[in-house]
Computed example of a mutant assay.
Amino acid sequence: MAAAEHGISVEPERKSLLSQHTEKHFTAGEIVRDIIIGVSDGLTVPFALAAGLSGANATSSIVLTAGIAEVAAGAISMGLGGYLAAKSETDNYRRELKREQEEIITMPETEAAEVAEILAQYGIEAHEYAPVVNALRKNPQAWLDFMMKFELGLEKPDPKRALYSAMTIAIAYILGGVVPLLPYMFIARASEAVVFSVIVTLVALLVFGYAKGYFTGNKPFRSALETALIGAIASAAAFGMAKAFNP
């Protein structure tokens, strides 16, 4: 027999259980994703550019100048791309929200049937989900939130998400891009600087790859090796092509 039939409220017990149990979930997924995008490209692209110019017998000053110009352009480009992507998500959410609002008003029976269908997919019987459907129909805002989340799979985006994404990606790109250029700031001969650039950047790629694997739930060591391998291939290809055309 249900607790309500005994005159016992389950609400205090529910609140008590929730207060005693605090779940720890990783909630910074979007920020980590932006950092990964920025640092990954920031390490790889200037690294390949510096290696290519070194292979073409350019001086350290030329490599450094070109590298800084590329980092600046890349940070702006990547940041703008992140901004537009996040803004697109926000615009899409608003369009779908407006459409769902109109459908709840103009065709409530159809929308209620969709709620029932969604709940039925979770194995809930008709006599069990009927009260839920009726309760949602009495609360239009909760009904709208339910449809956005469970029918369309859309979460309400942070209105500042686009700006934060652009800044995060751009800063991460700059931080990553500076690493392969550091040796050229202190070593005049590019042929010598490129050796140190390779060492420093591969170490940075290994550390970054490990951190990326750790935070994304993948195998950290495998992620580290894969990330370093990609950077090594890109720089080796650029260096080899430069040498081929400038023997």
Rank of each mutant, 00 (worst) to 15 (best):
A72M: 01
I62K: 04
G67T: 10
A86P: 06
S77Y: 00
A56F: 06
A85F: 12
G74F: 00
K87W: 08
Y93S: 12
S54H: 04
S88T: 14
Y83C: 04
A50I: 11
L84F: 14
V71R: 03
R95L: 10
L53E: 01
N57C: 07
N92Y: 15
A73L: 08
G55C: 13
A66K: 05
V45K: 02
G79E: 05
S88N: 10
F47V: 09
G52Y: 03
A50Y: 06
V45I: 09
S88H: 09
T59C: 09
L84Y: 05
A86D: 04
G74E: 03
V45M: 06
K98S: 12
S60P: 05
S60F: 07
L97F: 14
A56Y: 06
K98Q: 14
L53Y: 05
E100C: 12
F47E: 00
S61I: 10
G81R: 03
L64M: 11
A48R: 03
G74K: 03
K87D: 08
A56R: 03
A51L: 15
G82D: 05
A85C: 09
R94H: 13
T59K: 09
T65C: 11
E70G: 03
A86S: 11
G52Q: 02
I68E: 00
R99V: 13
S77K: 05
S54Y: 05
G79K: 01
A51G: 15
S60M: 13
A48N: 07
L80D: 03
K98G: 11
R95G: 03
R95N: 07
F47R: 03
V71P: 00
V71C: 05
K98D: 13
D91I: 15
A50G: 12
L84H: 08
L49G: 02
G55H: 02
Y83F: 14
E89C: 09
L53W: 06
S77Q: 04
A51V: 04
A56H: 00
A66D: 09
G79W: 02
L64G: 08
K87H: 12
S60Y: 02
N92R: 14
G55R: 05
A85M: 14
R95V: 09
E70V: 07
G52N: 08
T59L: 11
S60I: 11
S61V: 15
A73C: 06
M78G: 05
A72Q: 01
A75C: 08
A75N: 01
A50Q: 14
S77D: 01
R99M: 14
S61N: 11
I62G: 01
F47A: 01
L64C: 12
Y93F: 14
N57D: 09
N57S: 12
T65M: 14
T44F: 10
T59Q: 11
G74A: 10
G74W: 02
A50N: 10
T44A: 09
K87V: 02
A85P: 05
R95T: 10
A48H: 04
A56I: 10
I76A: 08
T90G: 12
L53M: 15
G52F: 05
L53G: 02
I76L: 12
I62Q: 12
T65A: 13
A48E: 08
A69V: 06
R94I: 14
R99D: 10
L49P: 01
A72G: 02
L49H: 03
I62S: 07
A58W: 06
G82M: 06
K98Y: 13
G81W: 04
L53H: 08
I62W: 02
T90D: 14
Y93I: 15
V45D: 00
P46V: 04
R99Y: 13
A75M: 01
G81E: 08
